[in-house]
Amino acid sequence: MWNIVRFLWNATKGHHLAPWRSPYLRWRLETYSGIKMTHIGFLEFWGIMWRERKQMAQFLKWTGEMKQYARVKPKNP
């Protein structure tokens, strides 16, 4: 659950209360779905998120796992 909150907070920087306006999220949804996101609104955004919720959850779980590999702990603390 923390991975979802962290990703959404970072991805919607400057658009926390209106994530469908976030250029980054629009770009991610456009590359994922192939649908142009230039004039996406509230209903379209949440419709896509609801339909693809399982795929999004898997993606966010994967990003959480990859973060562990990206932050290597020092061998000599």
Rank of each mutant, 00 (worst) to 15 (best):
L8V: 06
P77N: 14
I4T: 05
L29F: 08
W9Q: 09
I4H: 04
K36N: 08
V72P: 04
F45H: 08
Y32K: 03
G64N: 11
E30I: 00
L43Q: 12
K73R: 15
I48P: 09
G47V: 01
W50T: 15
Y32D: 02
R28G: 01
I40L: 06
L17G: 06
F45A: 12
G41M: 05
Y32F: 04
N76Y: 12
L25V: 15
R28Y: 02
V72K: 14
I35Q: 04
K67N: 11
I40R: 02
W50M: 14
F42V: 06
R53S: 12
P19V: 05
I48A: 11
K67Y: 12
Q68N: 07
W50N: 15
N10F: 00
F45E: 03
R6Y: 05
W50H: 11
K13H: 08
Q68E: 15
E30P: 01
H16A: 14
K61V: 06
L25H: 03
R21D: 12
S33M: 02
L25D: 03
K73M: 14
K73T: 14
L17H: 04
P19Q: 03
L60W: 09
K54G: 02
W62R: 14
L43P: 04
F7W: 11
W27Q: 10
M56D: 03
H15C: 08
P19D: 12
P23L: 09
E52A: 06
P23E: 07
M37L: 05
G47F: 01
Y69R: 15
E44S: 13
S33F: 00
V72F: 14
S22R: 01
Y32I: 00
R53Y: 08
